[in-house]
Computed example of a mutant assay.
Amino acid sequence: MAIVVGKIEPLKKLKSVLNDNGITRFNSIGETNDFLKNYESEKEEIPKITKITLNQEIKELDEKIKRL
């Protein structure tokens, strides 16, 4: 968790801390707030998205195997 002290450039500080931890998704405080509001629904979407992605990769690999 980031702790931002003072009022000078808090967004830059927050972005810096997030970037240092490999999180480059947020470009504004609004995007961060939206994420916080939608966290639970996004968390539930991860397995669905992962399954779709894996199925696409399996299909592509099957096609490559057939060509070889």
Rank of each mutant, 00 (worst) to 15 (best):
K66W: 04
K13Q: 10
N27T: 10
I49P: 02
N33D: 07
Y39A: 14
K43C: 08
K48S: 11
N27Q: 09
L54I: 14
A2N: 04
L18V: 01
M1P: 06
E9G: 01
I29Y: 13
I3E: 10
N19Y: 05
F26T: 03
I8M: 10
R67Q: 14
N38I: 02
T32V: 13
F35W: 09
L14Y: 00
E9K: 15
I58Y: 03
P47E: 09
F35R: 03
I49Q: 15
E44F: 04
I23T: 04
I3D: 07
E60A: 15
E40H: 04
E42Q: 14
F26A: 03
L14G: 01
P10I: 09
R25C: 06
K37A: 09
F35T: 02
E63R: 12
S28R: 03
S16P: 01
I58V: 10
L36Q: 05
I29M: 14
V5N: 08
N38M: 09
E63Y: 02
L61M: 07
N55L: 15
E63L: 13
R67F: 09
G30S: 15
S28M: 05
N21W: 01
I8S: 12
K64D: 14
N38A: 09
Q56R: 15
V17N: 05
E60W: 06
V4F: 00
A2G: 07
E63I: 09
A2M: 08
I52S: 07
N27L: 09
V17C: 04
N27V: 04
K66L: 13
K7S: 05
G30H: 14
I29K: 14
K7E: 07
P10N: 05
L61R: 08
I65K: 07
E42P: 00
K66I: 14
E42I: 04
G6K: 01
E60N: 12
T53N: 12
K37Q: 12
E42M: 10
K51I: 06
I29A: 13
I58K: 07
S41G: 01
V4I: 14
E57A: 15
I46R: 09
L61D: 04
K66H: 07
N33V: 06
E40F: 05
V4A: 04
K66V: 12
K15N: 02
K59C: 07
